[in-house]
Design a protein around this nucleic acid. Structure first.
Lengths: 213, 213
DNA sequence: TAGATTGTTAATCGATTAACAATC
DNA sequence: TAGATTGTTAATCGATTAACAATC
């Protein structure tokens, strides 16, 4: 019934959501694909095509109703219901992510638990969470209904943490460690790799003295 | 002379670098495109094609010499020379990034300065750096030869920080704030958007009760 | 109605993969 | 030499953009 939608399309939805969210905040009630595309730095035809995968959200001759589109995007991304998230790795990055609340009150992704192996960190209070030992992962994930895990441990521990998360029954992983983690096909992994971004950025710096052959 | 190389190719180079680095660490001296591709989770033809943009690095019938390829990749990405980086935003994320050193001693991207507007944070000691006031940005960037800026301020301040960085003469920006920043064409911006990764991951969670129509 | 803008089809563009001759 | 693996061309695949009929 529902044909597979390209990941490329899905990865743009949060961008649209954010843009529409901003429009809503500034009191705009209607937006054309033109305008939306401009604000999101993409092509207008692409916006229309992407959105059309999920229904006919626009009105010909008018554009899109902002509150309606906002609600639709939230619903498509399942961000209209609470989804529980845990973080494994209570180092600097894990702590930084712990107190992340995106769109203020409208954010339904909720950081529910924070894990570490280091005994020195366990029990520490980060935001309203206390750091739990890794061996409570499975139990907590199941009792609290945690569905997404974020990996913020060093690269050499990322794979074993990923496997633990999978065993605990997590459905999706966001991996911040600069390494590939392999998981069964039913678990989805997204990768946030700022080291790669930084490294590829370096390529574009001017004045390359060294590289032709 | 040197034809424009697709950004898609460039974005894969850090992945190859990382993989080859790991091989070098484990003492491997030769690697085939096959093996390299497998470890990087890409296609072997793609590895060969990507690398061939920059020269003939392989030996037919043998594969690639690991130390040689490592050196070449570093050189292409300009990671064989020191590049100075500053961070604007000394909050949790900025602090987390401050003590990031990738490949131990072989990392040549060096965090050189950390800025904030908050008077409470200015002067604070993070790692070996003391937090500087934002109005010293330009001066520091120029005197220290900082070429890349990382933006770790809240979204609503990201654009103004980006503009400051551009005015200070920065060549590239890595933006961690969940918003688009616009800069002149001669400055390159890479975006690290974990909120989008998280939000698009939510789409793939099972049991979508709400979304048809 | 006339003007505007959608949803969608068709055209373009670019990226990935397969295949293979060259050659170590 | 025979076997292996590259660099590269050709074939495939998919994604983006342009164009336009439908229609509010």
């Amino acid at each position: 019934m529902k044909q597979e939608i390209s990941p490329m399309v899905i990865r743009r939805l949060p961008l649209y959501l954010r843009t529409v969210q901003q429009l809503a905040w500034s009191g705009v009630t209607t937006v054309s694909s033109q305008e939306l595309a401009h604000r999101a730095s993409v092509n207008a035809a692409q916006v229309r095509k992407d959105l059309a995968h999920f229904g006919e959200f626009g009105v010909k001759g008018k554009g899109y109703d902002v509150p309606f589109l906002l609600q639709k995007l939230r619903s498509i991304l399942q961000l209209d219901r609470e989804i529980r998230v845990c973080i494994v790795g209570a180092g600097n990055l894990g702590q930084a992510l712990s107190n992340y609340t995106m769109y203020g009150s409208s954010e339904t992704l909720r950081i529910t638990a924070l894990f570490d192996i280091d005994p020195l960190r366990i029990g520490q209070q980060i935001q309203r969470l206390s750091v739990l030992p890794l061996d409570q992962l499975r139990e907590t994930v199941q009792s609290e209904g945690v569905r997404i895990g974020m990996i913020t441990v060093p690269a050499d521990q990322a794979q074993s943490v990923a496997s633990l998360l999978v065993q605990a029954g997590i459905e999706g992983i966001v991996n911040f460690a600069p390494t590939i983690v392999r998981v069964p096909a039913h678990v989805r992994v997204h990768h946030v790799d700022f080291t790669s971004e930084l490294h590829s950025l370096a390529y574009y710096l001017t004045c390359k003295e060294g590289d032709p052959v």
